[in-house]
Amino acid sequence: MASQDVAISRRHIIGEVPMMVCEISDRCLYTGFFGSIDSGRMAQITDKITERCELDNAKLVIVDLANVDAIDTAVATHLVRLGKVLELVGVKVIFCGIKGNLARTMVTAGVEFDMFKVTRDLKSALLYSYEFTGLKLVPIDENTRA
Rank of each mutant, 00 (worst) to 15 (best):
K84P: 00
D47F: 01
A146L: 08
E23G: 11
E16P: 00
T119S: 07
G97I: 01
C22Q: 12
V63A: 12
L29F: 12
G100E: 07
D121H: 13
N57D: 12
T77G: 15
E54F: 09
S9P: 01
L65M: 15
S124G: 07
M1T: 12
A7T: 13
I140W: 01
G40F: 09
L135K: 14
G15L: 13
G40D: 10
H78E: 14
E54S: 14
S39Y: 08
I71R: 02
L126N: 06
I45D: 04
T133Q: 10
V93R: 03
I13N: 07
E87C: 08
A43P: 00
N57W: 07
G40E: 09
A7R: 15
I8A: 12
A125V: 01
V75E: 08
K117D: 02
T119G: 07
I98G: 03
V85S: 11
K123P: 00
S9F: 13
H78L: 00
L86C: 04
C22R: 14
V6P: 02
V17C: 14
D114L: 03
V61R: 03
V91N: 11
A109Q: 03
Y128R: 02
I24T: 10
D64N: 15
T144Y: 06
D141P: 01
C96K: 06
A74M: 14
D26S: 15
I8W: 08
I24W: 10
I62C: 08
L60N: 05
S3P: 00
S3G: 00
V138G: 09
